[in-house]
Design a binder for these strands. Structure first.
Length: 666
RNA sequence: GGUCCGAUAGCUCAGUCGGUAGAGCAAAUGGCUUUUAACCAUUGGGUCCCAGGUUCGAGUCCUGGUCGGAUCACCA
């Protein structure tokens, strides 16, 4: 296998050739072009980064005074010389500074003097190099080069993006900008590649995500930008995470790390990544959730425990899904689901206030543009009530009736509603076929019209599809679509078919117990009708027990789990419940899951025998929760894509100009 | 996987009806000792994504492909 030659890894053009020449010239002038260190001054008490220096009170004060003077001037006016000179006297009294950074702009050279801005990634500071005042430092000896004009020559070979260190005194220029008057100049490192466009940054979203380093440089170089810079997005993310940790630790939680590689992928409904350990010769799975390990720790006496780290799910990638994502999970002994919702609210309010400074966030990139999310109030509503509420909204759009809470126990009615809902597809809605009356579906008895149907398996499948198709005039509608939109809409029909098949397979499967069917249907209706409409923070409570295999049943209603999910802007952000701690019942629930797995449900949970053993030692009553940190960050940073809040999101492999190996696989 | 949109200088983008390939930024050279999207002058830089077709002539029109984006589907 051949390795990629250096010159193919970085693109070669006139720009890189110039930089390469400059590098060689610098090597001649100052020696080693990659020195090992540069000692910065310590006026601010620690090493002076540009940011620290600008925040150093005496400097900040003088700067503020200068700004005040500038603010009082008219357009194009310059600050009066006396005031400026007075400030410069105070600056000079501070002594010399030594700072370093990346040249954030191409140098502005004027004959025998030049200005350039240095950036420490956060802040920038202008430096002024005058030919007669500056000496260059040798990178080999660390001593000044004797010859006059060397520094100026060195400066001539510097490019936009290079790193330099300077020593000199602070002063304010004629136009009122704080700057360093350079007396010593040291070259520190070369940028061999040209910097991103200073006005536009990096336009290609793929390069932004793939070459995050370039994106970060670009956002620090750009002078003006709307919204948060990339760096600010990740600073906010870091602040959010750190404030969550502080809050939990202040409330007695201890942070732990449980295995990422596990012999069983369980604790959530998801498909895992599989790998193999050679020495042990066993298959391992990247964890899909730390849940069962954390509860083992509750068994072991960690009454309050949390883990904030990555989970891995081998599923689709979308604006809200990345194969690895960061989740906070925590557990609290002696607490139930209601206590957990209260605590979750407090946690979010606290950490959002800390990281964002405010509890309201305006979203501008979403389909729901200009929505303001208000994190100060959290609604609580049961799953069934939510379906009813939004069904009414949907009913208004489509023209038909309301639901009744009793119907959630009527399998026949629910099945019809599911098909009805499944049929109301965006594209199909346009065709005018939506004039169907809900009452007609509900009152329709398939047995009357279906004639011979001894095939039990098909009961409620082909019949329903046939009946509802007829009722809705679907076939006619499809034809009229085909007429008006031509052949292109055949795919809509295919989509409809796969959609119906999915519904039939996962929601209307007769082989499941009636309880499970009711649960699945309710969940389906919730996803179809409600989920995307939950914009403001909303806890959905009272989940069907049969789709919540790790949570305790409600004392009031054995069919209902003490479980909630928090939805914001149509996304699931958190999921919590009263933890099931009866080992026998937990075993039975796992057994049900394994049964579902055998009949083809790939996401049903896997039995974990050791977890059952752990519960058998006794676990106190407890509540737990998982919170999606990436999605929360999306909300706080006004980003519509999870890739914008993950530094290095997963992408398909980079396509290089393939010289050989043009093999493409589907 | 479906649909729509896109690919032109290192970057961001124009390119009319089919008639010699353009701008700004970046780069090179010269000038300029307080500029700041520095300025002034000069210069270099192109497989117009690929292949085929129509045409006297294709960046432009047609067909096929590659790559990318948006969106829908899948994925709680």
């Amino acid at each position: 296998m051949s390795i990629t030659p250096f010159d193919e890894i970085i693109e070669q053009n006139d720009q890189t050739a110039a930089r390469r020449e400059h590098l060689e010239k610098l090597r001649e002038l100052v020696g080693n072009p990659y020195p090992n260190k540069f000692g910065r001054s310590t006026l601010s008490g620690e090493e002076d980064t540009i940011t620290r220096l600008l925040e150093y009170p005496p400097v900040a004060e003088i700067n503020a005074e200068m700004y005040a003077i500038l603010a009082s001037l008219g357009e194009g006016e310059r600050p009066p010389a006396e005031k400026k000179d007075a400030l410069n006297k105070r600056l000079k009294a501070l002594g010399n500074v030594r700072i370093a950074g990346r040249m954030a702009v191409p140098p502005r050279v004027m004959g025998k003097a030049a200005f350039v801005h240095l950036s420490d990634g956060i802040s920038r500071l202008q430096v002024y190099v005058r030919k007669q005042d500056a000496v260059a430092i040798s990178n080999d000896t660390g001593e000044p080069l004797d010859e006059e004009g060397k520094a100026w020559e060195v400066f001539g070979y510097l490019d936009h993006g290079d790193f330099i260190g300077v020593e000199g005194y602070l002063f304010i220029t004629n136009t009122g900008e704080l700057s360093v008057h350079v007396e010593k100049l040291q070259f520190l490192a070369k940028a061999m590649l040209p910097m991103p466009d200073k006005m536009h940054g990096i336009a290609d979203p793929e390069i932004r995500q793939r070459q995050r380093y370039a994106d970060l440089i670009a956002s620090s170089l750009q002078i003006e930008h709307d919204g948060l810079t990339t760096r600010e997005v990740f600073e906010r993310r870091a602040k959010l995470i750190s404030s969550i940790r502080h809050f939990l630790e202040d409330h007695g939680y201890i942070e732990v790390e449980t295995p990422m590689l596990t012999p069983k992928a369980t604790g959530a409904a998801a498909k895992p990544f599989k790998t193999h350990h050679n020495a042990l010769d066993i298959d391992l799975y990247a964890r899909i959730a730390p849940e069962l390990y954390l509860k083992r720790l509750v068994v072991g006496g960690f009454e309050k425990v949390y883990e904030l780290n990555r989970n891995f799910r081998n599923e689709g990638i979308s604006y809200k899904h990345n194969p690895e994502f960061t989740m906070l999970e925590f557990y609290c002994a002696y607490m139930d689901v209601n206590g957990m919702m209260d605590f979750c609210e407090q946690l979010l309010i606290n950490s959002i206030t800390f990281s964002n400074g405010s509890l309201s966030v305006k979203l501008t990139n979403d389909p729901y543009a200009d929505v303001v999310i208000d994190f100060s109030s959290f609604e609580r509503i049961s799953m069934r009530e939510a379906v009813i509420r939004f069904w009414q909204n949907k009913g208004q759009r489509i023209g038909q009736g309301d639901l009744d809470i009793d119907w959630f126990d009527d399998i026949d009615k629910l099945r019809r509603l599911v098909l009805w809902t499944a049929l109301i597809d965006n594209e199909l809605r346009k065709s005018g076929m939506q004039q169907m009356n809900v009452a007609t579906i509900l009152n329709y008895d398939p047995k009357l019209e279906s004639g011979d149907n001894d095939d039990e398996d098909d009961m409620g499948i082909s019949i329903y599809i046939d009946v509802i198709s007829k009722e809705l005039g679907f076939w006619q509608a499809t034809e009229s679509i085909n007429d008006s939109f031509k052949a292109g809409h055949e795919t809509d029909f295919q989509r409809f078919e796969t959609r119906i098949q999915r519904v039939l397979r996962t929601v209307l499967d007769n082989s499941m117990s009636e309880e499970l069917q009711l649960a699945r249907i309710t969940q389906f209706l919730f996803e179809e009708v409600v989920e995307r409409n939950l914009i403001q923070p909303t806890f959905i409570v009272d989940y069907p027990k049969s789709i919540s295999p790790l949570s305790k049943a409600s004392p009031q209603n054995p069919q209902v789990a003490e479980r909630f999910e928090l939805f914001i802007n149509g996304m699931e952000v958190a999921n919590g419940f009263s933890e099931l701690n009866d080992p026998r019942e937990q075993y039975d629930r796992f057994a049900d899951q394994m049964k579902a797995r055998e009949s083809g449900d790939e996401e049903a949970m896997v039995l974990d025998e050791d977890y059952i053993r752990a519960l058998s030692y006794g676990m106190p009553p407890a509540a737990g929760i998982g919170i999606g940190i990436d999605r929360l960050t999306m909300l706080l940073t006004n980003k519509h894509s999870i890739r914008d809040v993950i530094l290095f999101p997963h992408m398909r492999p980079e396509k290089r100009v393939a010289t050989e190996d043009t093999e493409s696989k589907e």
